[in-house]
Structure formats: C-alpha cells, structure tokens
Design a protein around this nucleic acid. Structure first.
Length: 279
DNA sequence: CCTGGCGATACATGGCGCTT
DNA sequence: AAGCGCCATGTATCGCCAGG
C-alpha cells in the first residue's frame, strides 16, 4: 500500500492524492514517468524528492520515516510493508490508573510465536525483547498500554511505528471494544474464555497472588487470546481499508485466529463471574 | 470506577493557478 | 493587479469511548 501512497508528502492531502490516482499515477513508480500535467513545478519537485526518500525508507525498513510523515489516521497503510517486523501487544494491570496500578502481564505475538512476561518472573526482559521490532500493533495502546509501559520502564524503546487498531476499527464503524470487534468480524474466542474481561483479569491476578497457579494460566491465556486476535483483526481491517480507496490495491491474505494450546481454568472463570458484580 | 488520544467540526491563513 | 476557488495546514473546542 505504501507504494500507492502520496498523502505522507507535505502539501499533499487527500484531494491531491486522489487526483493523482485519477490521472493514472497510482504508484511511486508511475510518478517517475509523470510528465508534469497538473501539479505546479514546485510541488512536483517536492513530491519527487519526497518519493526518493520514501523509496529509501521503504527499502531500508525505516518505520520511523512513515510514522513521522503519515497522518495518524492513515498509519494502517504501513501494515503489510512492515508486518515482517511487527509485534502485537497487550498488557494486563492491577487497574486503570498509571499512578496507582502496576503492570502484571505483558503478552506479545510476532506472527509466529507468543511470548509472555510476568511480574515477579521475567517482566524485566520485555524492554530488550521489544527493541527488535519496527512496528507495534495494539488496541487502544496509545491510551493504555504504552503510557503504562513507559511509566514502568522509563527508558523503554518501543518500535518506531505504532498502529492502534482502536481508531482504525472505529473509522470502519466497527465499535464496541476489542471483543466487540472480534465478534463483528466473526473472530470469537472459544467457550468460557468469552467471559473473561479486563476486570476479571485484575481478579485473576489477585487469585494467583493468593496461591492459585491456575489463575495465572487463565490470565495468560486470556491475555494471549487478545494478542493473537490483534493480528486477525489487523489483516481484516487492512483489507477493508483498501476497499474504500478508489484504486485497486493488493489485498492481504487473511489468516484465521490462531488456536492457542495453553491451559486455562473454565471453572475458575465461572466462579469469578458469579462472585463479582459487574457494572 | 479514570484518563486522554483522536476524530469531527469550525474557522483562519496562506500558497498557488486561473481568469478577468 | 485583483479577485476567486481550491487545497493544505494550523489552532481551538468538544465529546466519544476504549483500556484493567
């Protein structure tokens, strides 16, 4: 998709990009053979030089370049070009507020394997691990996960680009939180895991601290279900995004939600569900 | 329960090309 | 040269709504 993109160039907005497309300039390559019809000479030069930087950034895997120049609502366009170095992430905490609450679990998925970092075990390994990636994908992570992680690890270096799927789905009229979006896309998770939410994640952590090992298993399973779901969502919303554009763009091959083979305790979930009042 | 990024909206500004 | 429309961009304000 980036090779079709012009909106990251200064002085080029949605209208100009669509005009270029309409005139048959659908890729950066098309622009090189452009014989100067409807852009002013100054703008043409600007585009030309910005495209050569873009080409360099793309071949060099420079995600920071695109994070810097793309309007935030169009960051989703980066996904296929950087998915080879992409990390999906979701955290669990003891509550909602940075000042008062702590990170308990960090779950990640790179498209091949999941990783989990647990408070009191290996949470400290996360910053080193996170450095390897160019792109981060979360749901509401700009609000929640990233500020929490930065508070926890002050000199944390996260991937240069961050796609927050919350805003992508919202613009596509997919609303209702991560689980709601999964449901709308037919990506529901199995059985009892459906009943776990963030509030229960807090309770599961406390159960674990009281000595219940199965509570940690369940918390981790829940967390990783969220994480792997992000990839399935990203692929689908990307394809929905390109379908709204007036030019044909190569769609992404869509994968099913990965099936996790990790233990959890369905009875504990039922017990917690009955035990606490939700509002 | 708390928090804040973001989209939507409105408005001002300024560059540019075109017309008269 | 002046006026105009088009478009990008900046600023400000407001309310939504997602996370544990």
């Amino acid at each position: 998709m980036l090779k079709h993109t012009f909106i990251h160039i200064p002085k080029v907005g949605e209208v100009t990009e669509r005009r270029l497309w309409r005139e048959g300039i659908k890729t950066w390559e098309d622009f090189s053979s452009y014989d100067g019809l409807s852009l002013s000479p100054g703008l043409e030069g600007l585009v030309r030089s910005h495209l050569s930087s873009s080409q360099r950034a793309l071949s060099g895997g420079d995600a920071a370049f695109f994070e810097r120049w793309l309007p935030s609502g169009e960051l989703w366009r980066m996904y296929p070009d950087f998915s080879h170095s992409c990390i999906f992430l979701d955290i669990e905490t003891t509550g909602m507020s940075h000042g008062w609450n702590d990170v308990t679990v960090i779950g990640t998925y790179d498209g091949y394997e999941t990783n989990v970092f647990v408070r009191g075990k290996n949470l400290r390994d996360f910053p080193m691990y996170a450095r390897k990636y160019s792109m981060l994908v979360t749901y509401n992570g700009k609000q929640f996960d990233v500020p929490f992680l930065k508070a926890k690890f002050p000199d944390l270096r996260l991937p240069a680009a961050h796609i927050d799927l919350r805003f992508v789905t919202h613009r596509l009229d997919l609303k209702g939180g991560l689980k709601g979006v999964e449901r709308l896309l037919g990506l529901d998770r199995e059985g009892k895991l459906q009943d776990v939410d963030g509030f229960m994640a807090v309770k599961l952590w406390h159960e674990y601290r009281r000595g219940n090992q199965a509570a940690l298993d369940t918390l981790i399973r829940y967390n990783l279900e969220d994480v792997v779901g992000l990839k399935a969502i990203a692929e689908r919303v990307y394809n929905m995004g390109i379908n709204k554009l007036p030019i044909p763009v190569q769609p992404l091959e869509v994968n099913p939600r990965p099936r996790l083979n990790l233990p959890y305790d369905p009875e504990l979930i039922s017990w917690l569900k009955d035990r606490y009042v939700y509002y």
